[in-house]
Design a protein around this nucleic acid. Structure first.
Length: 257
DNA sequence: ATGGTGGCCCGGCCA
């Protein structure tokens, strides 16, 4: 089972690139973030034409998450379960081929002194509570998405240059570690221990060609999926060419063991 | 040159 995640930075702008990628990568499940669409605008038919069922949770201009699956899509759950608890349409869950899949778009945080920064930490804590409330680390669970946190120094181009900035701060990394401590491991790292393998590069300043990026898009899996992990890849091809997202997809090949 | 790029959609926010 191939499980993928991709922050597409507007599905309206990116649909041709997503269709192209689905046709050659053929993931069984693709989690999308930053669709920037309302539910009524989501292009379910384009995915259906490629053999994928889809679910979307978005309210228009900002954020928006989706799951596309060709191995079933059941028990779809949008958000954290209550309106006041679900500001921003950043979470969607579904059962796909025997795996509980979550597509998550963690708040950016903006800066360490921003009011958005503690909100980011709180969002990650709320994600852990949702996992505790709705599933078990003994079950096959994949939490996929843009975490807006680079887990370790080997996940950024230059730790010294990022000192004092968001995505690498100790509290953010601790908050991510608390989610993982529920019973998740970073599936990409089961296969690739190398440093400086990135999933996001700023559009500005030729960052992609200068290899100035971060690995902030993660597939976190429970033990049954970790045991079955055989292969993982960050597909840099999708960051090249015409009208790319600033993120590129990552996938893991695994089956529950 | 106190910027840069690209998405939303048209002035400014967001990443």
């Amino acid at each position: 089972m191939r499980i993928a995640t991709w922050n597409v930075n507007s599905l309206t702008a990116r649909l041709p690139r997503v269709e192209e990628w689905l046709a050659y990568a053929r993931p069984d499940v693709l989690c999308l973030q930053e669709t920037k669409q309302a539910d009524a605008a989501f292009p379910h038919e384009a995915f259906a034409a490629l053999g994928y069922q889809t679910a979307h949770h978005g309210d228009g201009r900002w954020n928006g998450v989706a799951i596309a699956s060709r191995v079933g899509l059941d028990r779809v759950a949008a958000g954290f379960g209550s309106a006041e608890d679900d500001q921003g349409t950043r979470l969607l869950a579904a059962d796909c081929g025997g795996v509980r899949v979550l597509s998550v778009y963690v708040p950016n945080g903006r800066a360490l002194d921003s009011e958005q920064y503690p909100a980011k930490l709180a969002w990650l804590a709320r994600l852990r509570r949702l996992l505790e409330e709705t599933t078990s680390p003994q079950d096959p669970v994949a939490v996929c998405g843009d975490f807006n946190v680079a887990p370790e120094d080997r996940d950024v181009w230059d730790p010294a240059e990022l000192e004092g900035l968001t995505h690498v701060s100790r509290p953010e990394r601790d908050a991510l570690a608390e989610v993982e401590a529920w019973g998740l491991v970073d599936a990409f790292r089961l296969v690739h221990p190398e440093d400086r393998l990135f999933t996001w590069w700023d559009y500005r300043g030729g960052a992609f060609h200068r290899h100035r990026g971060m690995r902030i898009d993660l597939i976190l899996v429970t033990e049954p999926l970790a045991r079955g992990a055989r292969w993982a890849l960050i597909d840099r091809q999708a960051r090249k060419g015409a009208k790319p997202s600033d993120h590129t997809p990552v996938f893991v090949d695994t089956d529950p063991v």
